[in-house]
């Protein structure tokens, strides 16, 4: 008897992505560049986050034609984004055979109160988090993989750094806590108690946690790996740079050898100009994507 859609199968898929780079792509041609550069997966979407930010309006799931085109173009896994709480977008992507769904704050939320009940699906989900409370809630809902929210489409690493340090700092605090104190910590974080107990027992999150939201250079990717990321998502950073193929290859290498500074120097040489980037304080609070979802 075989079982599909188990936690082991869904979380295991993310384990296989570790140490790798997942790249945002908007068509088959970009997907092939990403695969050729050594991406472990691609995220198929209609626009990269910096273009979503520039375009304004409502951002939705990509046209299934784009997702299908990308799935046909590459043999590596294909992920796609659904709006927070949009049950039907998620089911549509699942029916198409997408390998992972990102319930993403990059898109305009469909539900401001409820995230998806991800346990209901055979396909695994990745969700963003800024701190352990958010991470534990998403795990409680059945997310099989986490990523920092960062601030998407900015090319500014500061928010991803903040979120990675926050989550890992809180995990350390939890692990060193007396068990008597865990329920109060769960109350303070708004986190499911059982999830916190599991983290405390194992000394780490039960799912992998990638960095996302602002990675623009090989050094950014290596920084996030040093801070404890299991891998990285690069959204606008590749296809909004001067030379996407160069950037993609260099970011892959810097992620693998994140402690080899001579190598990072070498791969960063002459790869062209990174995406322009945005200072966070210039973004109006209501336009900050990281505050979407809870």
């Amino acid at each position: 008897m075989s079982k599909i859609g188990t936690d082991r199968v869904k979380r295991g898929m993310a384990e296989m992505q570790k140490g790798g780079v997942i790249m945002d792509v908007v068509n088959a041609e970009q997907a092939k560049i990403a695969e050729e550069a050594g991406a472990v997966a691609v995220m198929a979407l209609e626009r990269v986050p910096s273009d979503i930010r520039a375009a304004g309006g409502v951002a939705r799931m990509a046209d299934p034609t784009i997702v299908e085109e990308v799935m046909n173009a590459v043999s590596i896994p294909v992920m796609a984004k659904a709006r927070i709480g949009h049950i039907v977008e998620a089911r549509v992507l699942e029916s198409m055979g997408v390998d992972y769904i990102d319930e993403s704050e990059v898109l305009t939320p469909a539900d401001e109160v409820y995230h998806l009940n991800k346990r209901d699906y055979t396909v695994p989900f990745v969700c963003g988090c800024r701190h352990l409370g958010e991470a534990a809630r998403r795990i409680g809902e059945g997310s099989s993989m986490l990523r920092t929210k960062g601030e998407p489409g900015t090319g500014n690493i500061v928010e991803a750094v903040r979120h990675m340090r926050e989550v890992n700092g809180q995990v350390r605090k939890l692990v060193n806590m007396n068990e008597d104190e865990v329920m109060t910590y769960a109350k303070d974080l708004g986190a499911p108690y059982e999830v916190l107990l599991e983290i405390k027992e194992n000394g780490r999150l039960p799912v992998v946690n990638f960095a996302a939201g602002g990675i623009a250079t090989p050094a950014d990717a290596a920084l996030m790996m040093q801070l404890g990321a299991d891998g990285v998502f690069v959204g606008s950073g590749i296809f909004k740079s001067d030379n996407p193929a160069n950037f993609a290859r260099a970011i892959v290498e810097a992620t693998t050898h994140y402690e080899d500074y001579e190598l990072i120097a070498k791969v960063s040489k002459g790869i062209g100009t990174a995406m322009k980037g945005l200072e966070i304080s210039t973004i109006a609070p209501e336009e900050r994507m990281q505050d979407r979802g809870w």
């Binding site: 079982k3 599909i4 199968v9 898929m13 043999s75 896994p77 055979g97 992972y100 396909v123």
Partner: peptide, 15 residues
């Protein structure tokens, strides 16, 4: 053959 059992949706565990 790569991915011969299918995509992630078809991934499984068995004894």
């Amino acid at each position: 053959e790569r991915n011969a059992f299918g995509r992630q949706r078809e991934s499984f565990e068995a004894e």
